[in-house]
Computed example of a mutant assay.
Amino acid sequence: MSLSTNLPAVYIRTRIPKTYQRQPIISRLISRYDLTINIAAALLGNYDRNYGWFDLELQGSPENVESGLVYLQALNIEIFRLTLKNLLEPRMKKSQPAILDRVNVSIEQMDTVTEDEPENDSTQEAGQTTLTKVQVCIPDRYRAQPVISRLVSRYKLTTNITSALLSADAEDDGWFDLELWGRRKQILLGLRYLEQLGLQTWL
């Protein structure tokens, strides 16, 4: 299922500096501001040691989308391109003109677990919270689906992207190294979700 067109969407190209690459910035946008985020393109890790690049589609209520953009601005994360749906544009012009002044903005019309699994070296226990590291390949047929976003919204996992390679070419698969923080049952359910989608994962 693709993202709903019932809510305003914002398309951004953002550059995340190295100082924030160990923090779950995208995960916080989802959990704190109730946003659905689809990653359209990404480059993070050894490909560029100083910055990470993401093309993101943010979808949610106008208030939440605006709050998410303000959060990025407060972290001094650069937004290079911002495409607003027409329902959000007047609000942003009125309440957050500084954001619009700093980026290239264009406007679009609004479209009317039950078994335990064995321990492995990628899992560390920290009290009741577990960290699991997983590499996942997201094939091109899932490009329009917010797969990583659902790990946060459905399974309440704090998800940090430590490495990413997803070109803008619709025929290419995406590769992501993820850190999943949560209770063990949540992590097992999240991994099962990826398995049910038929995605290749490596722990």
Rank of each mutant, 00 (worst) to 15 (best):
D116Y: 06
S122L: 12
D111W: 13
N104E: 14
V113E: 09
K94F: 09
V113L: 11
L72V: 02
S67A: 15
S67P: 07
D121W: 11
N64V: 03
K93V: 01
Q96H: 15
Q109R: 12
S67R: 09
E108N: 05
L72H: 04
I99T: 06
D111R: 11
N86F: 10
L75E: 08
E57R: 06
K94P: 13
Q96E: 03
Q59Y: 02
D116C: 06
S95A: 12
R102D: 06
R102H: 08
L58M: 09
T83H: 01
D116A: 13
E115S: 11
L72Q: 00
V65M: 03
G60Y: 02
P62G: 09
E119W: 07
A74I: 06
N104T: 10
E115R: 14
L84E: 00
G60I: 02
I79L: 03
R102I: 07
D101L: 10
L82I: 01
L58W: 04
A98S: 10
E89M: 04
Y71C: 00
T83P: 01
M92Y: 03
I77F: 01
K94D: 04
I107D: 02
I79K: 00
E57C: 15
D121P: 04
I99Q: 04
S61R: 05
P118A: 08
K93S: 12
L84A: 02
L87C: 12
R81P: 01
G60T: 10
E63S: 13
Q109H: 10
L72T: 04
V65Q: 02
L87E: 15
P118G: 09
L84D: 06
N76C: 12
T112M: 12
A74D: 10
T83D: 05
E66K: 15
A74F: 09
I79Y: 00
S95R: 15
R91L: 14
S61N: 06
I99P: 09
E63K: 11
Q109L: 08
E78M: 06
K94H: 09
L88T: 01
K85L: 09
M92L: 15
L100T: 03
K94E: 07
E57V: 15
S61Y: 06
Q96K: 10
V70F: 10
E63V: 14
S106Q: 10
E89D: 13
V65W: 01
P90T: 04
S122Y: 04
S106I: 01
P118T: 07
E108R: 07
F80P: 00
K93C: 03
E63N: 14
E115F: 13
N64A: 07
G68W: 00
I99M: 07
E66G: 11
V103W: 00
K93G: 06
V65A: 09
S106W: 02
D101M: 11
N64G: 03
L87F: 15
I99L: 03
P62H: 02
L84S: 04
R102Y: 05
